[in-house]
Amino acid sequence: MIGFQSIRQLNENTLVLEWPENIGPDILSEILHFEQAIIKSHGDLINETYHSYHALAIQFHRDQTTFENLKKRISHLNLDFGTNLTPATWELPVCYDGKFGTDLEEMSKRIGLAKEEIIKIHSESTYTLYFYGFLPGFMYLGGLDKRLYLNRKSTPDRSVKSGSVAIGGTQTGIYPMDSPGGWHVIGKCPVSIFNTTKSPPCKMEPGDKILFRPISIKELEQINNQIEQGFYELNPNKNG
C-alpha cells in the first residue's frame, strides 16, 4: 500500500487526502478503495466525495462532525470495507474518418506517423478512466501511447464539436459537448457520455477500462440512427 501523504482542510466543510503526485493505476485503485471504505463506514457524516489523479476530496456535514473528528476516524479507517471493486470494460465506437478527425493530417506531420498508424495505435490501447472533470462528463483517461503525445494547440479552437475524440499533451478524451478546446481532434464518438435524463448521468465509473473501436462513416450513421430511434444501448463488455 502507498498510503495518503497528507490530510488537510480546504475550507469550512471540505477535506482533501493527497497521495504522491503521480498518475498511475495503483494510486487510483487506492483512492477508490479509500473512498468506498469512508462512505461505507462514515457515510452519515459525508455529503459528497470526488477525486482527481492523486487527491480525494470529502465534503462533510458540519452539523454532524468536525475536521479533527473526521481526520481521526479516517486514520483509523477499516479498509476491509472497500474490497469489492469490479471495474467494467467499455468499448466506444470511434469514426476516425478525416471528416471528423480534422486534425489527423496536421498531427501526422507533426509527430511523423502516418494517419493509419495514429488510428491503429490509438484504437489498440486500453485506457483507464481516472475521473471526470473540466466539463460535465469529460473523462480524464490514462494510457495514451507515448508515440501519440503532442502538446496542445497554442491557440485553442473556439468550438470543438460534441463527441470529438482528441489528443492533448499526454492525454486523450472525448468532448462531451460543444466547447472551446485546445486538443487535436482525431475522430468522433457518436455515443453520448453525459446524459442528464439518466441516473447516474454517466455510465462509466472511475477505474473502468475504455477501448476505442474504429468504425466507418456508414457504421457511424447506423449508430446515429439507432440512437435517434432509441435502440442503441451502450453496455459494458462481459467478463468485466
Partner: peptide
C-alpha cells in the same frame, strides 16, 4: 446541486 461532482458537474 450536490452529489454529482464525481461526474464533473459543478
Amino acid at each position: 446541486r450536490y452529489g454529482f461532482r464525481k461526474y464533473g458537474i459543478p
